[in-house]
Simulated assay, not measured.
Amino acid sequence: MQPYLAVSTYIDFDAPDVAALARALARDADGEHALVRRCFEFVRDEIRHSWDHRLNPVTCRASEVLQHRTGFCYAKSHLLAALLRANGVPTGLCYQRLSVGEAGAPYCLHGLNAVFLQDHGWYRLDARGNKPGVAAAFTPPQESLAFAIRERNERDLPEVWAEPLAVVVAALQASETVEDVAANLPDLPLIA
């Protein structure tokens, strides 16, 4: 589990503000589920989704997301991983491949998290931020994600990554504005 507890460039829970928030969210938490719920709801509800709110700058590192209080789903998942790892909860990054529109091409990746719960094992949760038509929650053992798989070229990618995918980091770091990210959303081709 060590890779899922480690500090890194993008999951930088050693940054003072991230570490302080992680301690504050853990204060008086009654067990692992309460701690995970607090961290999840903070990121889901207090960090605005960059595209939903058309907010710049484009963030990637957990500390940037917290500083600017905004991030795309990918960046928000980096902050959630940082807050949970800082509190000793193994946390990874997961992705879905979704249609950008109602159906069909183009497709893009959507970023979310998986946490290792002592009484459940790996459990996915999605802190992208709720809005009409999107209602994610922390409801173990049932998953309550922002998006369902709707068609054959969409996928729940099964991996739990310790670090963000390079294609995700590249898309965020190459973009100066939220419009740039939206025009160049990362994707992975499907293997037949």
Rank of each mutant, 00 (worst) to 15 (best):
D52N: 13
D52S: 10
G71P: 01
R54E: 13
P57R: 11
L66W: 10
D126Y: 05
L157T: 12
N87W: 05
L93K: 06
Y95W: 09
E143Y: 01
A86G: 15
H120E: 07
T91V: 09
R152G: 09
A148P: 01
W51K: 02
Y123N: 05
P90E: 06
E163K: 11
E46Q: 15
E41N: 13
L125N: 03
G71S: 01
F40V: 07
E143P: 10
G71E: 02
L35C: 10
I47A: 06
V100T: 13
G31Q: 01
T59D: 07
A148S: 08
Y74N: 00
G133M: 09
R152K: 12
A146N: 05
E32S: 10
C39V: 12
G111I: 03
R69D: 06
A81E: 01
C94T: 14
E41F: 02
N153L: 15
A136P: 10
C73R: 03
S77I: 13
G92S: 11
P140Y: 00
R85N: 09
A170H: 05
A136F: 06
H110F: 05
G111M: 03
A86Q: 04
A103N: 00
A105S: 13
S63P: 03
H78A: 11
L66S: 05
L109T: 02
Y123W: 11
P132T: 07
W51S: 08
R85P: 13
A135R: 02
R152W: 01
H78Q: 09
V167Q: 03
G104C: 11
V36A: 06
V168D: 00
R124S: 00
P106C: 11
V169N: 01
G133E: 04
R150A: 14
A127E: 05
I47V: 15
D52E: 08
F116Y: 15
A148L: 11
S63C: 06
Y107R: 04
E46S: 15
N153H: 15
